[in-house]
Each structure stands twice: as structure tokens, then as C-alpha cells.
Design a protein around this nucleic acid. Structure first.
Lengths: 213, 213
DNA sequence: CCCGCGCTCCACCTTTCGATTGATGCCGGC
DNA sequence: GCCGGCATCAATCGAAAGGTGGAGCGCGGG
């Protein structure tokens, strides 16, 4: 309140012009924030995060469907002396959250957050503290309580094809497997997800963000 | 450019504070626009649209999951001397678009639209002209070309339960039907969607935005 | 007034799926 | 080195789901 601390330098990355403008408008009213730049692509975010000497990067996860926000996060946080990355996205899909945190994100916020919560999260991130939206935190707790929710790569692959509407026969051809193997994977998937049919598995996996839609 | 026309009075309705701020920031730079108010709920939009004498309402369709943006649109446009309603939403789901247009929306834009496109759409709407984002227009064209993509209410209901992972038996109990009826609906659904299994039907319907996820 | 469509239901038959059990090779950690 | 998880495949059996061909009822438009 009294001593004017060094301003927090921010980089905004979001492909929606309206959201960028909104973040600018909201965050510029905070006297201790300084917006170094805003960019519409993850690539530019990676580049400028290194060049501009920012403290916190506010990053969307969905860039025009190309979804490399988590990779961009990994690249930014992987460098020495890297800024903190705050994920700011519309949806709270489990897989997204996990991916972002694994990629080294400091926090995860939803875009419907009120301005003061947003500012608080940015300050927390700048101080190196983790900041999770309540909804997100709850989801993570859920995740911890349910241990069997981790599908293997192959299982995810099979389930994705199921979600695309393929039959076991079609999946076996696509993946060069026997139908027995596909069935075997499905049995394991069902038991991990606690369901007993392909459609229920797709519903559960979609709800938990384990597969894309 | 020369004669200062009467300003276009706007009402913004979106549950995301950041988006509201962004729209304000983007639209306030247009000298012929005047933002009468911005509100976070569909209910307030309905109320203020009548009281404030605005020309154009910019409305989100998804309000915190409660999804009554289209109903709000219908209520606003149903009154005499009503303002034009421009839908401004994140996703381009077919069902949403159709519902909005049926509700009397003048245009349908995606939130990733650049500011100038947005301003142009608002001016078009104010002049009573329809404004559709190119992506949306394309989808509508697709819809026109494919005639059999309209599921009946009951069929949609059944398919939604299928997508939720229920078996035919479970669906029949839920809807107080015989399994024969459920199967019958499914057969019709398959033929309309051009598929031959429940999972494929869910995939197709999801891709076309016929059911919610 | 009748036709079409949406909604409901029935029977029969085929195919697919799911449940169970069991087996093999591979890899990584304790 | 052994154990556990992953990926692969096999056989069998009962249960769902899909395919076919009807049929009756109500409602709204030509």
C-alpha cells in the first residue's frame, strides 16, 4: 500500500481480440501492473516471453482449435529465469488442467472470473504462489480421490475412436489389431472409468476431458 | 464521415466480466456507438432492453450454463419496437444458431471476430440488415444442403440420453416407453444421420451440434 | 377429408458387444 | 531378478443392440 513495489510486467496471449482488449482494460486499472504486450498466437507468446522480460504470462489454452497452449507453456517455463505462466481459459476440462500444470503453469483461471480475483491471481503468480480458481481446485481434489482415472496412451487412442463412432471391427483395422485386443482395451477402460458400455465410457471420458470432441 | 448521424445505442449482455470490458473497449472507440449499459445476465438484458431504448443488443448465448440466451432473445424481439439482437458467442453449434435465428436474432457472430468485423456487424444490425459471420453462414448453407438433419424433439431427447451413456433399457424407463419405441426412434435417427450405430450417431450429432455435451 | 408425419408399440432374426478366463512378450522399478 | 503394468491375442457364451417389416393413433395442412 505504501512503498511502490516494482510493477508486475504482463504478457497477454489470447486469440480473441475482444478478450485481449478486455484483459487490457481490466488489468490496466491496477496501478502496479504493466502490460508489456498482447499477442494472438501461442508462438508469439513463446517468442516474446523470452525477449520482453515479463513477470507473468496470461495464456489461453485454446488457440483457434490448434490447442498448443500447453506446449507453449512448457516451452516458456522450461527456460531458465522464465516468467510464471497463468492459464486463463474458458473451460475447465480435467485433461486440460492436468496438461497445463504438468507443463509448468503456476495457476489456472476461468475466464468468467471477476476482475479482482483475476488481479489477485496475477499478484499471487508474480510472487511465485500458485493460484487456482475454486472450481478448478475442486476438480483437482476429485481427481486425487479417484485413482483409476488414468488411461494408458493406447487405451485413450482406442476410446477416441470409439467416440468417433467406429465399431470394434473398424477400430481393429485402423490400429492394425485383432478385435480381441480392442475388446481387451475396452474392458480395461470400462473398469477404470466405472462404466459398462462404450457409450457410457465416451460420456464419462468426455465429462472428465480425457478425450477430445 | 461528414454528417454526424444519430449514435447507435448498445446494450451488452455477457456473463464474463472480461468479455464485457473487452467489448466496451473495442466498441467505445467507434465514435458513432454509444454503450447504454452492460449486464451479466440474460434477465437483466431483457429488462433493460425495454427500458433503455437501445438500438442493438449484443448478447451471449451461454449464460453460466443456464442457456437462456435464446429465450431472452425471443422475449426481447417479441415486443413492438424492439431493438435488434446480435448474438455474440464462442461456439458455432448448429442447434444454437438455429435456435437464435428462430428467436429473432438479427445476426450471429463468433467472439474471435476482429474488431472491425464486429463494428460492421453492429452497424448492419442497426440498419436492420442481417449479419452473419462467414463461418456461421457456411454452416447454414451446409444445413440447407442436407435436408434430413432435422431430428424431431423426441428423437433428440432419446439421442441425448444415448450420448449420456444410457442403455436402451435405461432410456425406456427414463422416458416411460417400451424398448421397442426406443429402438424405433434410434432407427429413424440412424437413417437421418446416415449412420448405423449409437456411438456413430452421437459422434455425428455432436459434430453438428444437435445435442449438448 | 385424407395424407403425411411424429410418436408409440410388436415380433423375429442377425450381428455386435461385453463378460470371463487365460496366455504371451516387453519394459521399467524395487 | 522378479513383479506389475501395458499391449497383444484367443475362445466362449449370454446379453444388448441393430435390421426388417409392420401397425395404430393423433394432429395439422393441402
Amino acid at each position: 500500500m505504501t512503498a511502490p513495489a516494482a510493477p508486475v510486467r504482463l504478457l497477454l496471449a489470447d486469440d480473441h481480440p475482444v478478450v485481449r482488449a478486455g484483459l487490457r482494460a481490466v488489468l490496466e486499472t491496477e496501478p502496479d501492473f504493466e502490460i508489456a504486450a498482447d499477442v494472438p498466437t501461442a508462438e508469439e507468446a513463446v517468442e516474446l516471453a523470452g525477449r520482453l522480460d515479463v513477470d507473468v504470462v496470461l495464456m489461453d489454452l485454446q488457440f483457434g482449435g490448434r490447442m498448443l497452449g500447453s506446449r507453449a507453456t512448457a516451452e516458456i517455463t522450461g527456460r531458465p529465469g522464465a516468467p510464471r505462466v497463468l492459464i486463463l481459459t474458458t473451460y475447465d476440462s480435467d485433461a486440460d488442467i492436468l496438461a497445463a500444470i504438468e507443463a509448468g503453469a503456476t495457476g489456472y483461471l476461468l475466464k468468467d472470473a471477476p476482475p479482482d480475483e483475476l488481479a489477485a491471481a496475477v499478484r499471487a503468480a508474480a510472487a511465485g504462489k500458485s493460484a487456482l480458481a475454486p472450481t478448478v481446485a475442486l476438480r483437482l481434489m476429485d481427481r486425487m480421490r479417484t485413482p483409476a482415472t488414468a488411461l494408458s496412451r493406447r487405451e485413450t487412442e482406442v476410446l477416441q475412436l470409439v467416440a468417433d463412432g467406429l465399431s470394434n471391427a473398424a477400430i481393429s483395422k485402423r490400429l492394425f489389431l485383432s478385435q480381441a485386443t480392442v475388446k481387451s482395451h475396452l474392458v480395461h477402460i470400462y473398469s477404470k472409468l466405472g462404466v459398462d458400455s462404450r457409450t457410457a465410457a465416451v460420456a464419462a471420458a468426455t465429462a472428465q476431458g480425457l478425450i477430445r470432441r
